[in-house]
Simulated scan of single mutants.
Amino acid sequence: MEEEKVILVNEADEPIGLMPKMEAHEKALLHRAFSVFVMNDKGETMLQQRAKDKYHSPLLWTNTCCSHQRDGESNIEAGKRRLMEEMGFQTELKELFSFVYKAPFDNGLTEHEFDHVMMGSYNDSPNINPEEVADWKWMRPSDIKKDIAVQPEQYTAWFKIIFERFYDHLMKNPQTK
């Protein structure tokens, strides 16, 4: 099976080529990505715990799902596809904001991503894919913020970066909760 390719982009999110995912992470090259946050009617955010066999950040808590867009795929299409692949459900998504971040890992890989952050609403339990997800839970954003401060080692590097921006967005735009 051919390795999945990521879309290399410049600082304006303009595509400049395709590259195998692992190579892009080894070379720390900027590429397009997305992060999905799903919230319920109680204002809680669905978190996932990454599967123990993931090649980086196993068993750490992170946002509902995240991944990389495929060539020709819109941000929303990619978010919906990955939400189904990882969490086993579909919901409407809306893009909130995007930004660039860089997060190196202990294993020599680096996430250097132009990240499109999306949000959706869902009130049921997911049907998690055990190859991708070990566990899941609902948490209030304020409790996530407090927990990251107390035990940051329990969360993925990118989630700590993205969550700060997501939390600020929720505080400035309470209608999106």
Rank of each mutant, 00 (worst) to 15 (best):
M39D: 08
K27S: 13
E73N: 04
T156R: 08
D124K: 13
S67Y: 04
L93F: 02
M39F: 14
C65R: 01
D41W: 11
A51C: 04
E11C: 06
V100K: 14
F97S: 00
K21V: 09
N173M: 10
S98V: 02
E86R: 01
K146A: 14
R140I: 11
I128Y: 02
R32G: 06
H112W: 10
K54Y: 11
F99L: 08
I7M: 02
I148A: 02
W138D: 04
H31C: 13
Y122R: 04
R81A: 08
A78D: 06
Q154C: 13
V9H: 01
H116E: 05
V36K: 01
K94M: 14
M19E: 15
K21H: 11
W138V: 01
G120F: 02
P104E: 11
K42R: 15
C65N: 03
D124A: 15
M19I: 07
Q154N: 15
E77Q: 15
V100C: 09
K146Y: 11
G108M: 09
F114P: 02
A33E: 05
F105W: 13
S74P: 05
R165C: 07
V9L: 00
K54N: 12
W158Y: 13
L109A: 09
A51W: 00
A28C: 07
M87W: 03
T91S: 09
M22L: 15
V36N: 00
E11D: 11
N127S: 14
V117K: 05
K54C: 12
P15L: 00
Y155R: 01
F163Y: 07
K80I: 08
N63G: 12
A12N: 15
V133T: 05
D124W: 10
K54T: 14
I161D: 14
Q154I: 11
N127Q: 14
K145P: 02
M118H: 01
N173Q: 08
A78I: 00
I16N: 06
C66A: 15
K5L: 11
D147I: 07
W138T: 02
E11Q: 15
D41Y: 12
L59H: 07
D13C: 06
Y155I: 02
N10R: 05
N10K: 03
F37S: 05
E153P: 00
N10Q: 04
P15G: 04
I161G: 12
S35C: 10
E95H: 07
E113H: 02
F37L: 07
Y101W: 10
I148R: 05
E164K: 13
V133P: 00
P58L: 02
H31K: 01
F37C: 07
M171N: 15
D106F: 14
E164V: 07
P174V: 14
M118K: 01
P152V: 04
R140D: 13
P58C: 06
V117W: 04
E73W: 04
D135E: 13
A157V: 05
P58W: 03
E3F: 08
S142V: 15
L59T: 14
I128F: 03
A157I: 01
M19C: 11
P152Q: 09
G120E: 05
V133D: 01
E73T: 00
D71E: 15
A134V: 10
K146W: 11
N127P: 09
E85K: 05
E23C: 09
S67I: 01
G17Y: 00
M171R: 10
S57G: 10
P141L: 06
Y101C: 09
L29V: 13
P174M: 09
K52D: 14
G88E: 03
F34W: 03
P141F: 10
D13V: 08
W136F: 13
D168L: 12
D168T: 12
E77R: 03
